[in-house]
């Protein structure tokens, strides 16, 4: 069941401060967080969060398309790298 709209998106409050500080510093930073349940807000776009998956902090580079999703969606707890041998990735 979907969350009631009147409540607004859920975000752990302490994320805001560090996100602001990280944005202000303009440095190459990864913000380590455990809060997989927090919704990604427009304020976080452009930042990189290290989201804990129970084992390690996977870097999540927040883009506009990710707004409204939860941090945990991008840091899987069960990883299967697959059999694909010709997989390729673009440098961001």
């Amino acid at each position: 069941m979907a969350r009631s709209v009147w409540k607004g998106p859920f975000v752990d409050g302490y994320l805001f401060g560090k996100a602001e500080a990280s944005r202000a510093s303009g440095r190459n930073e990864v913000i380590k967080i455990w809060s997989r349940r927090s919704t990604i807000l427009p304020q976080f776009v452009g930042l990189t969060f290290g989201v804990y998956n129970g084992h390690k902090f996977l870097p999540v580079q927040v883009t506009e398309n990710m707004v409204g999703h939860k941090f945990g969606e991008f840091s899987p707890t069960r990883t299967f790298t697959g059999h694909s041998s010709d997989k390729k990735s673009k440098r961001g």
């Binding site: 859920f10 975000v11 752990d12 409050g13 302490y14 930073e29 380590k32 967080i33 809060s35």
Partner: peptide, 20 residues
């Protein structure tokens, strides 16, 4: 590789509802 700085968040885990 240029290692990025790591910031660890130490929150009080208080629930914050609306964020508009």
């Amino acid at each position: 590789v240029v290692e990025p700085d790591e910031i660890e968040l130490e929150g009080d885990l208080q629930l914050t509802g609306a964020a508009s």
